[in-house]
Design a protein around this nucleic acid. Structure first.
Lengths: 129, 129
DNA sequence: CGAAAATGGTCTCTAAATGAGACCAATATC
DNA sequence: GATATTGGTCTCATTTAGAGACCATTTTCG
């Protein structure tokens, strides 16, 4: 008996990546998330001190700035140096690993900038529909 | 009178990017966040249906999968096609714009993989200290 | 001298985002 | 008839992020 209604299409299943224990995921989360991206771009220009970062990124909270920097430092992407001034100064800069990452972020931004017109009109079309 | 304590170092200030209204930021958030990255990598291999994506990414919730896909669709990065099967099938695939983005994500992953040994030992050093 | 500002954070409290899972209508399968 | 499947949405609990007070020390300003 031939069914008169069409069968569902093939799924194209795939086991995907291992869920929580994937190390690449963790690093990506530390690096490609909202704030880390902006922080790394700032540090890509020049080393900056904690408060300077905060002023450069006015809408990040102290809390998230600290947390993001800690993650990046722990992963060896950012270096933290304390100088014994009064009051003490803390300078953050890209490590070698961090410098290797920088071009990729910049490429992302460039892609976004170049695609922006397309994106804008796609949004207009979507919202209009 | 020469101060005996060292002065704080220069800040290296910078006005940074415009806070909330930056369009590039929005796109980056839709594209480089945790789930979107994984979704785009899946779609980079082949178009996939909603439930297939969910099975490929077992630890994403329906809620976030839907939300991420909607963002990507609205920005014209992902295309959504509904097929009139019973029950109806919905296929997600990369648009041209999306395909242009794919190499960048892959580069990120490659960078993370290549740097993983360095990262691992950086973490060990950090945790040890 | 006393007050205010700056350093780099931490801590708490609240607001927002996320995860877990029930639920839906229509149809096919068992 | 019961169960499963489709692609979601909706609600509720949990997790995460944001806002801002607070800290000790020293410098500058009045």
């Amino acid at each position: 008996m031939t069914p008169r209604t069409q069968r569902a299409m093939p799924e194209g299943d795939d086991r995907g990546f291992e869920p929580g224990n994937c190390p690449v995921r963790q690093v990506l989360d530390h690096v490609s998330a909202k704030w880390p991206v902006l922080i790394l771009m700032e540090l890509g220009q020049e080393p900056r001190r904690f408060n300077a970062l905060q002023r450069a990124l006015p809408d990040i909270s102290k809390r998230m700035l600290t947390q993001s920097l800690r993650n990046l430092e722990r992963d060896g992407i950012v270096r933290r140096e304390v100088f014994d001034t009064k009051p003490p100064s803390v300078s953050y800069s890209l490590s070698e690993l961090g410098h290797g990452f920088l071009p990729h972020v910049l490429a992302l931004v460039e892609w976004a900038e170049k695609g922006m017109p397309t994106i804008i009109s796609a949004r207009a079309a979507y919202d209009n529909a």
